[in-house]
Write a protein that binds this DNA or RNA. Structure first.
Lengths: 156, 156
DNA sequence: TCTAAATAAGACTAAAAAAGACCGAGTTTG
DNA sequence: CAAACTCGGTCTTTTTTAGTCTTATTTAGA
């Protein structure tokens, strides 16, 4: 349950890969697909999305590719998820409208007894995601002792 | 994205409903299905599961039904989710084995670069769920007398 | 200027997961 | 014995997610 979506997986893989490069160095979809086994087309669309949302800069044509554009320590997981998957709301609220509007009308407003609980849950999950920065994620488990120590400390 | 599953919704609805009753008073699936519009069969299986996991006590036969058995302030959302949906792990880890074993073998262990990030994410989400008690959830939003009155009215 | 290598993006198909319906039991009360 | 429940299996449908195919468009370099 609650599996991460492929799109997000591919995005993290790509971002982590790019982050290891020198500034200005480009990365192609082909490169990532070959290295990590991600399906080319899906990965391409993910990167396109990130480029549209200006997390990446894209350069077209031969020798084109993608580069990281924003400071990933200022991009929250919440932002990333919404870019890739649309508005994230945990709640559907039995018989509620399916698109967005999680706080809004629920057909059973009169009878449904868990509107508030679901909203509370939504808030808590959103808060968690807003407080996780993409950089923090993709730097997890890196080999340098310094980073490892920092991580353990942060989690304690 | 990240919608709550119906099963969980039904479980919360049912638990909240039962919680409002006097100790020893039973609740039938039929009652919940009629009151909240939950599909009978699905709700039934949810309650069966909760009974198997001893959150509920079930009594069979005519005039049977379910009662809350455990102190819901000691049941975490994490527990509830795992009861209903199986082991919750965010990660699939590109090409990983599909069943459980989220921390275990991932076919691309050599090449996949986001094993640690995904594990970190997993931990954070688990922690969140472990710190949310079911009672906290189903009691949300009943603080003001007005709301409480409205709710009782709606439930009757 | 032509070609190869990229991104851009839409439409389509396939696979997987979730939700729900159906059915035939077993239990208990009256 | 009949009625009103729970129990739990299997099946079908629906929805969501993942992936493929196809056709542009852009750009560097031969």
């Amino acid at each position: 349950m609650n599996r991460i979506h492929r799109k997000v997986e591919y995005a993290l893989i790509a971002l982590k890969h790019m982050r290891a490069k020198a500034p200005g160095e480009k990365t192609t979809v082909k490169e990532i697909a070959a290295l990590y086994g991600c399906p080319h087309d899906v990965t391409a669309r993910v990167l396109q999305t990130l480029a549209n949302k200006s997390i990446l800069i894209s350069e077209q044509g031969a020798h084109g590719g993608y580069m990281i554009s924003r400071d990933l320590s200022r991009v929250s997981l919440h932002e990333l998820l919404e870019m890739l998957l649309g508005p994230l709301g945990v709640a559907r609220c039995l018989h509620a409208n399916r698109e967005g509007e999680h706080d809004a009308a629920c057909e059973l407003r009169g009878t449904c007894n868990i509107v508030s609980p679901i909203q509370l849950l939504n808030r808590k999950i959103s808060d968690l995601y807003k407080n996780i920065m993409v950089s923090e994620l993709i730097e997890a488990g890196v080999r340098t002792p310094k980073a490892a120590v920092a991580m353990v400390g942060a989690e304690a």
